[in-house]
């Protein structure tokens, strides 16, 4: 855990800038199929990084993150289908609804903390799934809700850039939060809640705030995802999806800024190669995540960081 260092602002700006330039290139040389994989990876970057914000930085393991992405997707999808609201506005509504419900759920159960928060969010997630699956008029249950896309002319390149811009925006926000006063309080709460509260930090408020921000981000990611696939199904808020996001953050490196980003790309790309084994890939990722949590708790970035010990492994 390094603090703000003076390791050269040139590098601090230079490396992200280089990445952004590299990130602009894929549509020029990737096939449609691999561009699709990139877009899905970006969705997972948003999910894993925003989950990391609560789990990695304030130590609250929530299982409702996929549920919030589902809330964002369904809210946006339903206003689009029933009221003809354009997806651009829809995803903002979806983000708002996810934030509100996040605030509500956070307010109700965050005081419990620890394992109880995990259990409550797990329950919340299952209840949501059951409601969505059994409701066949508004959410259309397992049949899936067909929704319009963002662009009148379908283009993978356009979607890629849209996802890229939003992902970068979310990452900047996360980076900013983590490196701000707020981030400092987040980590104080993570490291020693008692010490934090005795030094005047309202730990409950900090945790609810983190939970709400993170839920809103999941809602935004879910809305984008739904309108990209043009089909919203109970798979988006499912626990399977949740465990995949969790595995990405854990394998990449929880509590590090880069970790979930790397984890998302690695796992999503890998799952394309091992897709022939069907559902077993989630099981495999689960096992790897478990092994990682035991033997390399700082994830891939922790392993790489040990080798390179450079500043961009935070």
């Amino acid at each position: 855990m390094g603090n703000k260092q003076q390791a050269g602002t040139a590098k601090k700006v230079g490396i992200p800038a280089l990445f952004i330039i590299l990130a602009i290139l894929p549509p020029f040389f990737l096939s449609q199929y691999w561009l699709h994989v990139m877009i899905i990876s970006l969705f997972y970057v948003m999910m894993a990084s925003s989950w990391n914000l609560i789990a990695g930085f304030t130590g609250q393991v929530s299982f409702a993150h996929a549920a919030f992405s589902g809330i964002g997707a369904y809210a946006s999808g339903m206003v689009a289908v029933n009221l003809g609201v354009p997806p651009w506005l829809g995803i903002l509504i979806g983000t708002g609804v996810a934030a509100l419900l996040g605030l509500g759920l956070g307010y109700l159960c965050i005081r419990m903390g620890g394992i109880y928060l995990s259990l409550t969010t797990l329950g919340f997630s299952e209840i949501l799934r059951i409601i969505i699956t059994n409701e066949d008029k508004w959410t259309r249950g397992t049949m899936g809700l067909q929704v319009p896309g963002f662009f009148s002319e379908y283009s993978k390149a356009n979607y890629y850039y849209l996802f890229l811009v939003v992902t970068i925006f979310l990452l900047i926000v996360i980076y900013w939060i983590v490196h701000s006063e707020m981030g400092l309080t987040f980590r104080a709460v993570l490291n020693d809640e008692l010490a934090a509260s005795s030094s005047g930090i309202n730990t409950i408020r900090v945790r609810i705030l983190a939970f709400t921000i993170s839920s809103a981000m999941a809602g935004l990611a879910g809305g984008l995802y739904g309108h990209y696939l043009m089909l919203i199904t109970p798979d988006i808020p499912s626990l399977g999806q949740m465990f995949l996001v969790l595995a990405m953050a854990v394998i990449g490196g929880m509590g590090s800024f880069i970790g979930p980003i790397v984890g998302s790309f690695v796992l999503e790309t890998l799952s394309e190669y091992i897709r022939i084994y069907g559902e077993y890939h989630v099981l495999l990722f689960g096992l790897v995540a478990l092994a990682m949590a035991r033997f390399a708790p700082e994830g891939l970035m922790g392993i790489v960081g040990k080798k390179w010990r450079k500043e961009w492994v935070h």
Binding site: Y33, H36, T142, G144, L229, M230, L231, T233, D235
Partner: peptide
């Protein structure tokens, strides 16, 4: 399931 079906066809 529809989402897997759509992605299967896409692939």
């Amino acid at each position: 399931v529809p989402e897997k079906a759509a992605s299967a066809l896409e692939k």
